[in-house]
Nucleic acid binder design. Sequence first.
DNA 1: TAAATATGTAAAGTTCATTTGACTTTTACT
DNA 2: AGTAAAAGTCAAATGAACTTTACATATTTA
Lengths: 67, 67
Amino acid sequence: MKNRLKVLRAERDWTQAQLASALEVSRQTINAIEKGKFDPSLPLAFKAARLFNLTIEEIFQDQVETV
Amino acid sequence: MKNRLKVLRAERDWTQAQLASALEVSRQTINAIEKGKFDPSLPLAFKAARLFNLTIEEIFQDQVETV
DNA sequence: TAAATATGTAAAGTTCATTTGACTTTTACT
DNA sequence: AGTAAAAGTCAAATGAACTTTACATATTTA
């Protein structure tokens, strides 16, 4: 699962800590999601979409499995 | 988190077991999600969206907190 | 260059998504 | 009414999301 969080953050000049606080998660959670360590929960994805005024699909992109 | 899985299933005349198999999860998982016991993971939500050819937002609706 | 801020990472613990297996209840059909 | 399929539910187990604490590295700024 790829995501555009780092770019969206950069566009607004936000730190990971600021985004974390806006989404009410820890800074490490934001870091881990940006670095692809794990995927956010669906509720957290919705919260991010609301925050950035985008759809979930505009922020998170499912990897289409190329078999 | 509300969702339209039951309706989408009914429109296609699918059982919970059939949807489960299409999404490669257990029947109990579909049942629990439909009954609102828990939210699906983001990857599972993407898979459902792909299956129904809808966006995540068209299937799952975040409860806006009315404080 | 030193200090401050931002980012990356790791371990241990908690909570929740998901599985398996089994059982009960509901719905539909004969 | 009897049967079969579908839906609902429960308990125990596993794994993944997320937290806290703590430290290391990188980047910015005084």
